[in-house]
Design a protein around this nucleic acid. Sequence first.
DNA 1: GGTTGCATGTAAATGGTTACATGATTGT
DNA 2: ACAATCATGTAACCATTTACATGCAACC
Lengths: 182, 182
Amino acid sequence: MDVRSLCLAVLSRGPASGYDIKKMLSEPPISHFQETSYGSIYPALGRLTKEGLTNCVEERQAKRPDKKTYSLTAKGRRALREALSAPLSPDRFRSDFLFALFFGDQLPAETLLAMIATRQAAYQERVDGMQDCDLSEASPQRRFVHGFGLALYAAAAGYLERETPGLEAALTAGDALGQAAE
Amino acid sequence: MDVRSLCLAVLSRGPASGYDIKKMLSEPPISHFQETSYGSIYPALGRLTKEGLTNCVEERQAKRPDKKTYSLTAKGRRALREALSAPLSPDRFRSDFLFALFFGDQLPAETLLAMIATRQAAYQERVDGMQDCDLSEASPQRRFVHGFGLALYAAAAGYLERETPGLEAALTAGDALGQAAE
DNA sequence: GGTTGCATGTAAATGGTTACATGATTGT
DNA sequence: ACAATCATGTAACCATTTACATGCAACC
């Protein structure tokens, strides 16, 4: 999803500054499946405003840069709806961890097992954090999205926990074979 | 993971051409968690060779471009090991689908449900494809990686299947409320 | 006294995708 | 006949990240 649509989407919830938008996009649950930086948001807001998809109201602030509050125009809302209902690009999972593991015959078994333990901890931490999350006020969609993320991370953490011993056994057996062959 | 390391990793399995490398990276299971294109691979191979991380042997071919077969040098193998054992960037999941769903109050319920059905089918198809996969010859690592992917996709497909009816109920109830309020 | 939050923005560098350019062979 | 496979490479374009630039206020 391009940054412009991300901005429009956040603004559909109400007026916000570039700073606010970045904050919302960088917090769970959105941060779990989208990424952005100031360097892309500010230019995007400028362009959106120039093209009439957003309005911008400047508020003078002493001792700070003027705060610019953006809001959706009717045209912007239409553009957002279009972007959300257009064919969406497929979900993607990127993992350097799996890649390293896949080519792990280049590395000592201990290194691999340490890598796995680190990932397992990271996934588990995420799961724990999400389970503590208060959803009593959340919309059905938000709960659904939250649940989806939780299901994925729990599956990852669970798999790593369950299957690591088996891999460890296979790797040490392989090492022994390798040494026997020498 | 940068394209250079991807190339080195594939070459650690044996000499290959740019074409071969692209093919391996574009096939499951690697395609499930890494992406590349010719436009990045060919320049990367050129640079790797210039820097002495790979060797290149050209083979004349009539009627086709000369085939260039690359192989790892000792330096290249060291660089690969370094890249694989360096701190890896965290796994990332990107989903325009979840994003659209999250801001789904902008869209009619039917559109949302259709989107979900499409994704569910896509995930399920992936799961089915992976279950049919023959792993009898595969290394322990490869099985582990395969299993990880399968666990994730199965969790996604399962979640969507289980939880969609609940969301549908909530959405239609919400619609009714919204209409009552008008 | 240090970190976090508020608040904007630009410029350079990075790194990549997409499309183009070419073209025989093999399988359906 | 048509698609896929083999086989390389370049150039234009795109988007984004990272680092820089600035600086107060509030909290710990």
